[in-house]
Design a protein around this nucleic acid. Structure first.
Lengths: 248, 248
DNA sequence: CTACCGTGAATGTCAGACATTTAATTGTAA
DNA sequence: TTACAATTAAATGTCTGACATTCACGGTAG
């Protein structure tokens, strides 16, 4: 963690300091749980004031790279980034990416189901009874009358996350969390009629059955059908919207 | 973007303020490119001092949710989060997750190839001549003598990213960037002999050929072989290490 | 009409101070 | 000697006020 030399570049000292420390963390110069120098010491080292150092530390804290403790023997510590911590960030980022970049429903849907199908064979091998139970419970909820569209979508997400978790690979679960959850706002634009809900529940049941039977091929084919049906539903909504637009 | 009411909870005002603004951005209360109130105004609204507001803003800037401009008519603006900006963050986070959580080579490898195989059928349909050319160029580089292991790995990553990009789905490219790039440090632990490089180049060629022929099945089977071979290599390394450990 | 120069508003930075939290130390009594 | 309570010190959290820097805007001179 060099310091005090070679500044220059453009302005924004706090960004430069954050980068220096971040590089030190990523390159393992600083180990997990190691304590950084105190804010005052860092200010000395980097030849800046404490507020500037603090801004840099907050940047790192926002990325969960460090955590801070107050009090004696407190300070900033290199954080062990856990999957649990990374999930919400991944989901927030993915959701914003989709909503801010005019990603079409089709593109997002394609990505999501391509990834889910990648999990299917592994899930067919490894799904636990717990995960199956979660899926069955969500299916049950989805069939309940009087469920709002939002609640239906939320249950849908929970179902699919159970499927992904069934692959028993935390790396996959992490990557997929973003793809699956980020779809929810897009799905919320669809109005689910009683008939379409029934069709989705049937396909979900097909998936759960296939996983219970450890049948990878059947799981895959059910996912393909579900993807086709989802896109069909979205198309219907889009067409209806275009039509009403033309009639204006 | 409510303020000044209902604080309490635990300490760390800057985190609370960051959360409030983040929520406003995520929920679309604040539009893209919309200007936030000035730091002084925010300090008034939230009843805190300007440094505290600044720390909150730096947190958001670290997540690329806002950008700031100096000078007259400057300020903090809601940022349009682009895929280009999100890539490096995703890669950094994924890399740290793998290196800090003792994710085994097998688990990471499984995830990576499962995801890549999800891209294969789409890439077989859509790969552009450009992407094919990139893959061929990287294959050529990988065959060059005197290439360091690191450079070989870097080229491997470039090859696989071209494959993923071939699917023509930015959402997939984004999600996979993390999985593919994060593997590089793990791959770097392997020493690639001339023979193993030859085998990998052959499989890469098989993949490129299959994509050129738009043959999804052949692409998939080549990827399966490549995964098997990669894991075999890693196993050899691991066994050699265990052996030398026992002999100590 | 154009080029130049204030002016003001905003962020970036600094210095110093005080508040709060918390572990470690010290002091005291059983 | 041990257990417990009070003190201390170090660190982060926060505030105030000031100054530096940047940059759009408008007015003025040529």
């Amino acid at each position: 963690m060099k310091s005090s030399t070679a500044r220059a570049s453009s302005s924004d000292l706090s960004a430069q300091i954050a980068k220096a420390i971040r590089d030190a963390i990523v390159s393992r110069e600083l180990d997990v749980n190691q304590r950084l120098p105190s804010e005052a010491e860092l200010a000395d080292q980097f030849q800046v004031s404490r507020p500037t150092v603090r801004e840099a530390l907050k940047r790192l804290a926002a990325q969960s790279l460090i955590r801070t403790q107050r009090g004696a023997s407190g300070g900033a510590f290199v954080n062990r980034l856990s999957f649990e911590e990374a999930y919400p960030q991944q989901i927030t980022t993915s959701t914003l990416l989709l909503s801010m970049n005019a990603v079409s429903f089709d593109v997002a849907c394609e990505a999501r189901y391509a990834l889910e199908r990648a999990c299917a064979p592994l899930a067919a091998q490894r799904r636990t009874p717990d995960q199956l139970a979660t899926m069955r419970a969500e299916i049950l909820r989805q069939g309940a009358p009087g469920l709002s569209d939002e609640a239906f979508c939320a249950s849908d997400v929970a179902f699919h996350r159970a499927l992904v978790d069934g692959a028993g690979n935390p790396v996959l679960s992490y990557q997929l969390a973003g793809a699956v959850e980020a779809m929810q706002p897009l799905m919320n634009m669809i109005t689910f009629t009683a008939r379409s809900r029934e069709a989705i529940v049937a396909l979900h049941t097909e998936i759960a059955d296939a996983l219970e039977a450890r049948d990878a091929a059947a799981t895959d084919s059910a996912l393909v059908k579900l993807e086709a049906y989802t896109r069909e539903l979205a198309d219907t909504v889009a067409n209806a919207r275009n039509k009403s637009k033309r009639e204006q």
